[in-house]
Design a protein around this nucleic acid. Structure first.
Lengths: 199, 199, 199, 199
DNA sequence: AATGAATGAGAGTTCATTCAT
DNA sequence: TATGAATGAACTCTCATTCAT
């Protein structure tokens, strides 16, 4: 058949991306078929190949674009002039807010790394490293300034990131606590963990 | 053909479990085939079915048995008479040590939950809940006694567990830091996070 | 790869049906594999699933469609105004002619009933019942009119149907007797069996 | 494990035969597995091979032994001195009674012929031919004596056998009619079919 | 840009059969 | 004579991908 009335390439590609994101997050990359993705948006599996050359490209796109958006948004939002304690709190707030609004992307960014072919894996890892480096630098600066009493910034970075990203695993939109309350609770824990006095 | 000389059921089942554990951890449940598991230990795929009725049973077994061992070991190791701060530190030490020695089990316990059929999922979740309840009780007791300044024990529980379990994602046996050093670093962060003064 | 030049769905489906019919009749449903059906018509087994959702659907289709065609052809051919003796003879002629020209369908209709899933079985049974009811009504009418001396129309129906359908088991196209001769022989026996005087 | 107390070879072989007969009749030879047969009688599949060299031998045994028993019983029961009309009626009575008491054997004798390997098929066919020859001779004698008005004994044989054997397809032990009643009804039809006057 | 038919590979699972025990 | 573990082949069905239309 010919193109459906009003369907436009870029639009279709986006619908594919969205469907794939949601399905990968729910069932995992390996367990989701191109047919399933197509069915979700009323398309035959074959049509997806007009927009993405392979299933692997689809996955890579989702992960790389997510990381790039994350980095870009952070780089746009951060204030390099802030002193360490304020910088740390700003990072924590940003991380929680950003990650909570794109749960599926975050989820597959952790879960589907091993389904990336090697070169794609390295690409995503490099982006993640760059993002985490932001927190690491804040911690290192604070340590140098004597406001954080941490003895190993890399380990602290991993600990804090893990703690923060873990929220996606249990957070429910209309749960007992609002996102703002959760934010304050985590700021409290992290501020304590790096040895800063409560503010 | 027939049974190989010296082949014994329980032993073979264990070799299957081991191979499956390692492959699931590396490539994911959905991406690993029964043939691959068999090949790993010199068995035809079909022979696995002499020991496990389905692939799903294999996965469930790995997860349930891991959680049951974890719980049993903790219940045997814990000292209920310890005051909250010592109890927290004991839990942290236990969690890190236990989890570092069974990396693959821990990894698939987080990654493959969604590949469990519903009833198996509930079973594993219940075990996990019981384990986490131990930390939650410690935190709640410490809060009641006024030695921890946390305002929400459930959230603190999730934060601490995520932080601790995250170690498996980057820990390397012969890395820059020994397990003992990592242990001390995490104790430091967690003690700070719950508002206890450094010991 | 992709669609072969000139391949059209409906045509392929028909070739599959035909191959399946012939193979099921020769070897039995359970003993015929999808690969075998595909091989018969130069298709991969998987391609069959573009046309039939399961092997069971294939079987059901063959049986149901055969029975529906049989019923429709009979309902179109019968003359309700005939008196019982002529009606019986017309039915016998119709049954023999129709059944001889679709031997495989008739054969699997008797042989593969037990390989139908329950709901499909009931569907086919109901169609068969409707067809047999035609003969039963003819016999009952003839008995009421006093032209047939049978004491139990249902039993007579089963006996006659079995006798007639049995022809498919031994009839050979170029055998000793022509179809017309066979027809006359069976009319003779059945006319005698129901107690009508020879015509 | 060793032999179970009290189990004896011939006995076990019989239990296997019985289970196979019942399962083949219900589901068909190709659809029944050696494991299923074993399960039915509390045996591992492998143990069956102590009594029957292959699954095909099991089938062949059931069919050949059934036909041999049938022939032997008939040859013992028949009275060669009877005139044709009495001989025909005796055959009909014998056939119905014998076949009704071994429904599964009769059923698989018709259904599973095509699952016999060629040499086994010929063996069974020869036995069947010998049995049918009895009826054919009765019919031929009656025709020669002028008491039957059939023009083709072979065709009449096939018709009568089909009619009689068809009873197994619908007969139910506690149905509307007793076996004796059915017997009389069929004798009536067959006597009419061969042109004998009702007795 | 989409459909629908095809490929060839491979999935989980079952099978008849064998044989050490 | 039976068990239980194994083989190697086969099963139905699904997959990523391709391509004529």
């Amino acid at each position: 058949m010919a193109r459906k009335v009003g369907s436009v390439g870029a639009e279709t590609a986006d619908r594919v991306r969205l469907a794939a994101l949601s399905l990968f997050a729910r069932y995992g990359y390996a367990a989701v078929s191109m047919r399933q993705i197509g069915r979700e948006i009323g398309l035959q599996a074959g049509a997806i190949y007009n927009h993405f050359p392979t299933k692997q490209h689809l996955l890579r796109g989702l992960l790389v674009e997510h990381m790039e958006r994350l980095l870009a948004t952070w780089e746009c939002a951060r204030d390099e002039s802030l002193p360490p304690r304020e910088a740390l709190i700003a990072f924590v707030r940003f991380h929680i807010r950003y990650h909570m609004q794109c749960g599926p992307e975050v989820f597959i960014s952790y879960m589907e790394l091993r389904n990336l072919e090697e070169h794609n894996f390295f690409e995503v890892e490099e982006l993640r490293r760059r993002y985490e480096m932001n927190l690491r630098n804040i911690l290192a600066n604070g340590r140098a300034d004597g406001v954080f009493s941490i003895s190993d910034p890399p380990v602290a970075t991993m600990g804090i990131i893990a703690m923060l990203t873990g929220i996606t695993n249990w957070y429910k939109e209309h749960g007992r606590l609002s996102l703002e309350q959760i934010e304050e609770l985590y700021i409290g824990m992290i501020v304590g963990a790096v040895g800063m006095k409560e503010i």
